[in-house]
Design a protein around this nucleic acid. Sequence first.
DNA 1: GCTTTAA
DNA 2: TTAAAGCAACGCTCA
DNA 3: TGAGCG
Length: 312
Amino acid sequence: MNPAGPGVDQTVWTRVDGRDFPVSNLQKLFWPEEGYSKAHLLQYYLAAGSTMVQYLARRPLTVVRYPDGIHGGSFFQKNCPENAPDWIATLKIPRAEPGESPIRYCLANERAAILWLANQGAIEFHPWPSRQGTLAFPDWAIFDLDPAEPATFQDAVQAAFWVRQALDILGLRGYPKTSGATGIHVYVPVYPELTYSQITRFVHAVARQIQAAFPDRITLERPVARRKGKVYIDYLQNAPGKTIAAPYTVRPLPGAPVSTPVTWQELARGLLPTQFNILTVPQRLQQGVDPFRPVLNEPQSLLPFRKLWQQE
DNA sequence: GCTTTAA
DNA sequence: TTAAAGCAACGCTCA
DNA sequence: TGAGCG
Ligand SMILES: [Mn+2]
Ligand SMILES: [Mn+2]
């Protein structure tokens, strides 16, 4: 018996950028309260995928899958599924512990790979901050700004401007995006010339300066209970093996929000993270708006700031 | 969502 | 024949 | 040495 009911189709074949693959259960409700189906998810990634793929290309990818929608079970997936089509590139990476089996990551080097994974129920995409060829050297540093209750998105916005100010003093540019939840991510595009631990130390050092200047608004404390009402600068998110929600990834939250790059001007004028979702972001991209393009095209060097990243 | 393993 | 089970994990910090 | 953290 068809679990979706009689007369409801299960699988149709589609072609994306010359790749043929089946898509299933298009009518399944992934966001039941909003009435958004799996088809809405796939349509979103079809529209955003050609932009998003630039930020995923040649990066080992972890996905978070929700095969039965946001209220169903979920799981992280690092190893590329055995049944993935052979046109999806993969990269085998040995684990830190020798003797442990390597992980064969998917690489979303083309839009169709995003769509194939989304059909598997992948809602969230989490790429490494480094790329094939320079895997040990991230090409962006991230200031992950997490407001702790009762602090809000607006507090994260304030913190983002303090990050911008601190970077400006160093002559560096950062680019903000909404996390899709209540936080903000500020990306600093860099040449792949510092290791993960050096990047982490750099972000830590800048974060300490900000925390020292605004101690009642910013915290670097790990225990969640001690962050109350402040914005946590999660510099450790730059450590090896950690990932952050990709630019333009969907989040499994009410309203189907999208982690969306914004200009500093938009951030200053005021916005709600929920205004960027799977229905609105495609229109924004259609108008050619992608404030993150410099993250791809304008790497900066952190070599002059040795004091901020070298091992003490 | 799909494959593998257990009942 | 159907039903589970699996599908990640790692370095840092504080107690 | 172990638990919390993301
Ligand atoms: Mn965050
Ligand atoms: Mn975080």
